[in-house]
Design a protein around this nucleic acid. Structure first.
Ligand SMILES: [Mn+2]
Ligand SMILES: [Mn+2]
Ligand SMILES: [Mn+2]
Ligand SMILES: [Mn+2]
Lengths: 218, 218
DNA sequence: AAATAAATTTAGATTAGTCTAAAAATAGGT
DNA sequence: ACCTATTTTTAGACTAATCTAAATTTATTT
């Protein structure tokens, strides 16, 4: 149906649309895709001809209904495979993204559905991101950033905003993982760092960390 | 490392080498790859530059040590994924080849090893073909074609030579599957057909069928 | 309202993989 | 040994996806 490259562009536009509802600029897309703006223009034209995106010259780009549906299918496969790798093949959560980048392009509706069934229809991937169901619906969670919590508040760690392996390994090293309760003991106004309590251990974390951890409060 | 197309050529050369030990001809490869001889020549040159094949103009092509190793890795992945699809995702044996054609190109040594472990280090794929181990070793079975059996001889069905979905569905329809015992009741010299006994049922099959079923005699 | 800066598009080139048509090499038959 | 048929290679073209450099459009500043 669509090429790997086309699917990757659609996925990138989908993610950037959360940030720029008015339309995704050529440069933003070029940065996300780690390519040149001229290449992006070329690809956008092709996607536009295939009616996957709405595009007017110099006005940025948006996904069409079809483009949106297609992007969600790719994201669904990406996250199902990540879940598979962690839950069935014992991969660590920092090792799965690059392999899922390949697996997300495998074309077979039946494979996706059977994999979903085999995994027990998981709702979230190893990084806490929602896995769209077969109809493309995401389950939304009312999560917030740890950095937004006030002193003495607590919540359950439910996801990461940055899912780079560097950040994930930092969390592993400090025994922070999804499902654990975190309580804010102190907040330092000067540098935004905070002292947290996690599993009876006290830990000081910088604002960079608390800004990339999602928390669900009861 | 190598492109999908390069890997597919290596795999095709590997399979054709079983038939033409002296070297695989351009035309044979073109037919196997469903492409034109001129395209094959171009690709062979590239594979030759990359030292994956031994090639002398007009003399056909053979896999180098590296080419052989690479082809076996692709075949290993293909057959492991086929096993996964049948054993874990409940696919029928006639539905898995095309998906495995995609999955065999996923690049991750760790994925292959973990998948192998998860599956319990299977020795044969759903069609009875051997799955090479991590070192590239195939387990050889002393199988023969059902057509070669004489009247009153019997054996266990261990594989298919033709693994097209048409043939596999024919076998399904006639309740023939791997692991079952088959006894030759009669052989008709005129058309090569035979009457067989399988699970207390008598069945007449044409030579085309008996020529594509592998049997292991005790 | 210009002038300047930034963003975007166009023009032209490149690489991988394919094709058709023509040329060259090899193999077979007499 | 020569002629012919077959096989293989070469030449030139095409598409997808990318790039650099130049041109154009839009945005911002004075
Ligand atoms: Mn990922
Ligand atoms: Mn993820
Ligand atoms: Mn197969
Ligand atoms: Mn097989």
């Amino acid at each position: 149906m669509f090429s790997f490259s086309e699917e990757n562009y659609l996925k990138a536009i989908f993610h950037l649309e959360r940030k720029y509802q008015a339309g995704v600029s050529t440069n933003a897309l070029a940065e996300e895709m780690e390519t040149k703006a001229s290449s992006v223009t070329d690809m956008i034209k092709k996607l536009s001809e295939k009616e996957l995106v709405i595009y007017k010259k110099y006005q940025g780009v948006k996904l069409s209904e079809l483009g949106n549906k297609t992007a969600i299918k790719v994201i669904r496969k990406h996250r199902l495979w990540e879940y598979f790798l962690v839950e069935k093949l014992d991969f660590n959560w920092d090792e799965v993204h690059d392999i899922a980048e390949q697996l997300e392009h495998i074309k077979s509706e039946k494979l996706t559905q059977e994999l979903d069934k085999f995994l027990g229809f998981p709702k979230r991937d190893p990084h806490g991101d929602p896995i769209p169901d077969a109809q493309g619906n995401f389950s939304v969670a009312n999560k917030m950033l740890l950095a937004e919590l006030d002193k003495a508040e607590k919540g359950i760690c439910v996801g990461v905003k940055d899912s780079s392996s560097e950040f994930l390994r930092f969390l592993d090293k400090n025994n922070i993982s999804l499902g654990k309760e975190i309580k804010v003991l102190e907040k330092e106004a000067f540098d935004g760092s905070m002292l947290i309590l996690i599993e009876e251990r006290e830990l000081r974390i910088s604002q960079l960390i608390s800004n990339n951890l999602y928390i669900k409060t009861q």
